[in-house]
């Protein structure tokens, strides 16, 4: 993403380029409220700046928000993670399969909450949590699951291909087993 584009995104959210992730989230919540509800600030301008146009702006803002979110996470990942993450990945990623709890650990090291990640990845918080806890029975069908895990782990700088492959393997085993049991 070019700096110029990024600056535009921050401008759309009306925040400083140094805003933290939680500030970005709060700014976005505020914008959503301004542009999706009627208030004494919108009503007097409603005939010129119609609801429809305001919804269009909100779409742009949403896009800016997810771009900024991705950007911040990537930056975090580059900066402070490398050393800590290496420790984990050396031990676990190499020969040992990446488990749900590894994913959770990597996430926590980065100081990210499930809620934050849910907003950025657009995967529900519940699903993210179920992935981490390996609550197989609650997880969505395999094709979706694959996609979710790839997207999720990408943000955490985990080898997402491997993470997804490992995970699905375990998932399949569980499925077979539970079928037998039935």
């Amino acid at each position: 993403m070019s700096d110029k584009k990024l600056k535009k995104y921050y401008e759309l959210l009306e925040i400083n380029i140094n805003a933290t992730l939680s500030e970005v989230n709060r700014a976005y919540e505020r914008m959503k409220k301004i542009y999706s509800t009627d208030s004494i600030a919108t009503i007097p301008i409603d005939d010129e700046f119609s609801k429809k146009e305001r919804e269009k702006i909100l779409k742009k803002i949403s896009k800016a928000y997810s771009k900024i979110g991705t950007h911040i996470l990537e930056k975090k990942k580059k900066k402070k993670l490398i050393s800590e993450h290496d420790k984990i990945s050396e031990g676990k990623e190499g020969s040992i399969a990446i488990s749900g709890s590894t994913i959770q650990q990597v996430r926590e090291i980065q100081g990210l909450s499930l809620l934050e990640l849910s907003k950025i990845t657009k995967i529900s918080k519940q699903i993210l949590e179920d992935i981490e806890l390996e609550n197989y029975e609650k997880l969505p069908p395999e094709a979706y699951l694959m996609c979710h895990i790839t997207n999720y782990t990408k943000f955490l700088s985990i080898d997402s291909q491997k993470a997804a492959d490992d995970y699905i393997e375990r998932y399949k085993k569980w499925k077979k087993k539970s079928k037998k049991e039935v």
Binding site: E14, M31, K33, I34, S39, I57
Partner: peptide, 14 residues
């Protein structure tokens, strides 16, 4: 106070 932020944002965007 939130109304203040709304006014500001609407003026910028409009």
């Amino acid at each position: 106070i939130e109304i203040g932020f709304s006014i500001k944002s609407l003026l910028i965007k409009y």
